[in-house]
Simulated scan of single mutants.
Amino acid sequence: MNDPLTTLAGTLDTVWHHLERGTVQRDAPARHPVLATAGPAGAEARMVVLRAAGRIDDRIEVYADRRSAKVGELASEPRASLLVWDPAQRLQIRLRARFQVLAGETVAALWEALPGPARALYGGRPAPGTPISGPGDHIADPAAHAFCVLRGALSEIETLHLATLGHRRALFRAADGWRGQWCAP
Rank of each mutant, 00 (worst) to 15 (best):
M1K: 10
M1Y: 10
N2V: 13
P4I: 11
T7K: 10
L8I: 05
A9H: 13
T11C: 10
L12N: 06
D13T: 13
V15P: 01
W16I: 11
H18Y: 09
H18C: 04
L19Q: 03
E20A: 07
R21A: 07
R21Q: 15
G22R: 00
G22L: 07
A28E: 03
A28Q: 08
P29I: 04
P29F: 05
R31S: 11
L35E: 07
L35F: 08
A36I: 06
T37I: 02
A38H: 11
P40A: 13
A45F: 03
A45N: 04
M47C: 14
V48R: 04
L50P: 12
R51N: 13
R51C: 15
A52E: 14
D58R: 15
R59E: 08
R59S: 15
E61D: 15
E61Y: 13
Y63C: 10
K70L: 06
K70P: 02
V71L: 07
E73I: 02
L74I: 08
A75S: 13
A75E: 14
E77R: 14
L83W: 14
V84Y: 00
W85N: 02
W85Q: 11
W85S: 00
P87C: 01
P87I: 05
P87Q: 10
A88P: 02
A88H: 03
A88N: 07
Q89F: 10
L95S: 09
L95G: 04
F99I: 03
V101Q: 06
V101L: 10
L102D: 15
A103P: 03
E105T: 15
T106W: 09
V107G: 09
A108L: 11
L110K: 13
L110R: 13
E112Q: 12
A118D: 13
L121H: 00
G123F: 06
G124T: 06
G124R: 15
R125N: 04
R125Q: 15
P126V: 02
P126D: 00
A127M: 02
A127H: 10
G129N: 00
T130V: 11
S133E: 15
G136V: 01
D137W: 04
D137R: 05
H138G: 11
P142C: 05
H145S: 12
H145E: 15
A146E: 04
F147G: 06
C148Q: 10
A153N: 06
L154A: 04
L154V: 12
E158C: 07
T164D: 12
L165Y: 15
R168I: 03
R169H: 03
L171N: 01
A174Y: 00
A175I: 06
W178R: 05
R179N: 08
R179K: 09
A184C: 05
